[in-house]
Amino acid sequence: MMYVDGLTKTFGGFIAVDGLTFQVKDGEIFGLLGPNGAGKTTTIRMLACLISRTSGDARIDNLSISSKEDSMKIRRIIGLVAENVGLYEELSAYGNIDFYGKLYRIPENQRKENIRHLLEELGLWEVKDRPVGTFSKGMKQKVAIARALVHDPKILFFDEPTANLDPEAAKVVRDSILNMKKEGKTIFVNTHNLDEAQRICDTIGILKTKLVAIGSPEHLKETLQKGKTVIELEKVTDVIVSAIKAVSSANLEVDGRRLVIDVIDPQTENPVLIQAITSVGGKVVAVNQLSPTMEEVYLKAVRGKG
C-alpha cells in the first residue's frame, strides 16, 4: 500500500505540490493526470525518494519517504521509468540493464536469467548486444522498462511512459504495464494522455498543484460531468422546447432536429423527457445516450467547468 498524507513541495516561494492525500492499493494502477506544471513529476520524484518533501509524508510498503534510512529501502523495492529514458547510448541493451542489476545486488546467475526473461518478453533478445543509441524510441522505452524491472520491484513509477511514442510503441508500453499489473505489481503512472489513463488505470487522480479529483474513471465521470441525452425529432418546435423545460431544468441545446439535454440519471430522466415531447405532439425518431468523455471530465476538474 502507498499512503500519501499532505505531501507538499515548495521551491523557494513557489508551491509545486500542495497537500496531496491519497492511497494506492496493492496491485492497482494509479494514474496521476494533470496539465504541464501541475506537479506530477515532482510528486513521482518525492515518492521515489529522488527529492525531499517540504511537508507531509508518504508511506510506501510501510516505509516513510521522510526517513533517510527508509528511503534507501524504498529505492530497493521500486522501479522508475522516467520521462526521458536515460539510457547509456554507447552501451548495449544488455549492458544497460546489467549495470542496474549489479547496483541492485542481484546475484550474477539470477541477473542473467532476469535480463534474458525481460528482453525476451519485450522482444529485444535478438538485439541485446546492439548499442541502444541505434534503437528506435519505442525500443529504448522497452529497454528502460526492462531496466526498471530487473530487480523485480513491488512498485513501479512511470513518468509519461508513452509521451513521444508512435501509437504502436505506445500500445506495447501500455500492454507491458497491464502485464505488470497481472503479476501483482503496484503501478503509479503520470500521464496527460486521457485515453491511456481511462484504459489502464484503476484509479485516477487529477492534479493541479492540489489534487482536484480522485476516483475510478467511471466514478469521476459520474460525479464530475453529466451525461447527455440526444433526442432526434421529426421537427423541433418552441412548444416541444417549452415542454421539456417544464420537466427539466438541465442544460438544453437545440441542434437542428436534435435536442441535447444534460442528464444525471438517464434511466429515470429519459422517460420523463420523452413523455413531455410526445404529450405536445412531438415525434421522436431516435434517442441516444452520450457518456461524458474523459476529456470533459478532466477539463471540468482542471478548469472547474465542462
Binding site: L50, R75, L80, A82, G86, L87, Y88, L103, Y104, A144
Partner: peptide, 14 residues
C-alpha cells in the same frame, strides 16, 4: 545529456 542521472539516482546508491 543522456538524462541518465534520474534513473540512476532512483537506485539504492548514495
Amino acid at each position: 545529456i543522456q538524462k541518465s542521472l534520474e534513473p540512476l539516482l532512483s537506485t539504492p546508491v548514495s
